[in-house]
């Protein structure tokens, strides 16, 4: 292990470390705070919503609750992929100013759970204007693999709502 600061889940988590669930998008690994993961579901066809951006695939029924589904590849402007048997939807709790929302993100596959100390998160470099850095909490290295740790409250929060609101404003103008 090149970087001893990171550990696999099998080691007891030590103080100051958070656990992250990682998922794969086009062979890249991304992490989200595991405490925000509500459940993991298989892909099912959602009901599309009118006049929303492409990456909002629609809504599905999760035990009587209507939950929007966001395609992460499309959100990041990556090449879209056909949904297959390993395609999963991770249900995340997104904490906003007024309330909590539950949203599902479509990813290629779920990978691992890691404990990563806050010290070992490097700030994200400037990705340019296309992808805002504000929703990247930091970069970590585990077993030579780079993990982009995402701040889902920013990624799926007001920014995403606002971007669709802009379209709403356009649609109702």
């Amino acid at each position: 292990m090149a970087n001893d600061a990171t550990q696999s889940i099998h080691d007891p988590a030590t103080a100051g470390e958070d656990q992250y669930l990682t998922f794969i998008l086009a062979e890249e690994e991304y992490g989200v705070d595991i405490l925000r993961v509500q459940e993991i579901k298989g892909w099912e066809r959602p009901t599309p919503l009118p006049n929303t951006p492409d990456y909002i695939r629609g809504v599905i029924n999760v035990r009587g609750m209507i939950v929007p589904i966001i395609d992460m590849r499309m959100r990041f402007g990556m090449e879209p992929m056909d949904y297959g048997p390993t395609t999963v939807v991770i249900m995340l709790r997104v904490v906003g100013e007024e309330r909590e929302r539950v949203m599902g993100v479509v990813v290629d596959a779920v990978s691992e759970v890691y404990s990563i100390g806050a010290d070992n998160l490097q700030p994200a470099p400037d990705f340019g204007t296309r992808i805002g850095v504000n929703f990247v909490r930091g970069l970590a290295t585990v077993e030579e693999q780079m993990i982009l740790v995402l701040d889902i409250d920013t990624l799926l929060g007001p920014g995403l709502i606002a971007s669709t609101d802009a379209i709403e404003a356009e649609a109702t103008a």
Partner: peptide
């Protein structure tokens, strides 16, 4: 609840087969 108001819709419902309409 989990998203926002969508113009042209007054909400959604769950049909007998579990699909959202």
């Amino acid at each position: 609840t989990n998203f926002r108001k969508v113009p042209g819709t007054a909400g959604a419902t769950i049909l007998g087969d579990g699909q959202v309409a």
